[in-house]
Amino acid sequence: MSVLEMKDIHKSFGSLEVLKGIDLNVDKGEVVAIIGPSGGGKTTLLRCATTLETIDKGQIKIGDDELVTTVNDKAVYCSKKMLQDFRSKFGLVFQGFNLFPHFSVRRNITEALIHVHKKPAAEADKICDNLLSKMGMLDKADAYPCNLSGGQQQRVGIARALATNPEIIFFDEPTSALDPELTAGILKVIRELAEEKMTMVIVTHEMSFARDVADRIVFMEGGVIVEQGPAKELINNPKNDRTKEFLAGY
């Protein structure tokens, strides 16, 4: 069963066509890594799926909720009310963390639970404690983001994305802002989520991580999916010449 369905996604910035008809389905429990050179459209694709960019043409669904469909060759988005529902179906982990600096770690995680999902504070706190202990950060619940390391901030970012119990989590280069040591810690957290069969889409430059953790790898360049396949096979035996060339750089 598909959790995420993206069909024939087209997106241009002005005259620059960034996505030229992308199809991407992600099944429940599947981990998909998107790799490829910068400017190839990976992040834009993720941003379209997470409502941060609007597409020109195509269809996006998470579960039964349709974000956008195409009528007469033009993208038609769902209502505002539906958009709110749609946003509760997924979580997004940013490259730059984007934590709320004026909130404690706890409030970063519970704010949406309490004020968007209308959960009682006690329940939100419980969810927060569970997630923080899973991240090994329970002792930092009352700290502020500015007092945390990059790795710790990203853990909070992941906890925040997980808090609303989404059906799928998107990661936009979650370790690009971290040094190698901290990167390992974050990758471990993602690996654990994969073992728990969390559905995930990860844009990453960490090839060995993608090979080990992802079920499937998608190689994107120039706004199209050049090649995709089972993770190990694609990394070890790429068929397309461009994929080979790209992977040779790692």
Binding site: L52, R87, N98, F100, E111, A112, H115, V116, H117
Partner: peptide, 19 residues
């Protein structure tokens, strides 16, 4: 990023502004 984080968490426009 602050607007984007708030948006994907489902905060409404006025919640994002005031909170």
């Amino acid at each position: 990023g602050q607007y984007e984080a708030a948006a994907v968490l489902g905060f409404s426009k006025s919640q994002t502004y005031f909170r």
